[in-house]
């Protein structure tokens, strides 16, 4: 899977490396900004209801 992504990236190794880093950063951004806030309320340690922590 990751090897396939690496092969699909064009250019010399340093450019591929840079693009791979950007891809990772993008995925982390999406996770932190949208995915994690969305799933946080479903965690057992997330206080719910009127009383809170």
């Amino acid at each position: 899977m990751y090897a396939a992504i690496w092969r699909l990236l064009p250019g010399p190794v340093w450019l591929r490396f840079l693009m791979a880093l950007l891809l990772v950063a993008g995925v982390v951004l999406v996770l932190f900004e949208w995915v994690f806030p969305m799933i946080a309320p479903y965690m057992p340690f997330y206080a719910g209801g009127a009383e809170v922590g």
């Binding site: 340690f45 206080a47 719910g48 809170v52 922590g53």
Partner: peptide, 10 residues
């Protein structure tokens, strides 16, 4: 003041 207890728990 009200807050959660124990830590990492609700």
């Amino acid at each position: 003041l009200t807050t959660c207890h124990p830590l990492f728990s609700t």
